[in-house]
Amino acid sequence: MTAALLSIDRLSGGFLGADGGIAPVLDAVSYDLMPGQLTAVVGETGSGKSLTALSVLGIQPPAFRRTGGRILFGGRDLLSLDAAAMRTIRGARISIVFQDARAAMNPVFTVGRQMADVFRLHHGGSARHAMDRAIEALGRVRIPEPERRARQYPHEFSGGMAQRAMIALAALICQPSLLILDEPTTGLDVTIQADIMTLIVELCRDQGLTACLITHDLGVVAETCDAVVVMHAGRVVETGSTEQIFTAPAEPYTRRLLAASQLGEPV
């Protein structure tokens, strides 16, 4: 067995209440992301799937208090790192794509400029060179007329286009070893969603990226992911290969979730 790139080890924690108590939301969450694989973390609202992923990047909500556990990335515990060390990991080694790409971009700078700035931050070089890389990345995610698009502002992008640009930024500009995708296609139309998922799978394969897809939708998982982690109410319910989860789910919750997701589909 190869070693996991990222290993979440019994992560527990909760939200600090007004009375000083901690309302638990994560209960000994453990899962591994294997190098080169696309792993889905699936769960409904309140399952803790996003919170766990945000903790990996150290960008969890301020009210969250960890009560135990480790997050090992390439053998190092991310939770023991100071803010400066974490900054060198965030973006350069681990990057994230959020649900609402347009909200995640700065509205007053052009898309190309924002991507070029991030490129220079991580790799240095001239502004000209960085802009060329940005345009190249936009082309790689199949945005038509990348030169013209790079000069546009986020509000001139449709939701699907903005998400492509976000993926270009997170995967191609940052060149991380781990890419976290937090509900990247939620809120997009199904045809756009299918295109974006195809793109994600292609990029991960071409770049040899390890990726973690956080989603509530088992439908997008079946055709795209290698492994699945099912979460419910702050716990990991079941982990396994995608085939195993879909064809032989072991836990009742997984079976229920699967049945609910397969509504209306011929079996």
Partner: peptide, 11 residues
Amino acid sequence: MKPLAPLEGLE
């Protein structure tokens, strides 16, 4: 081809 029974019991 029949759709799965919905989760009536859970309702």
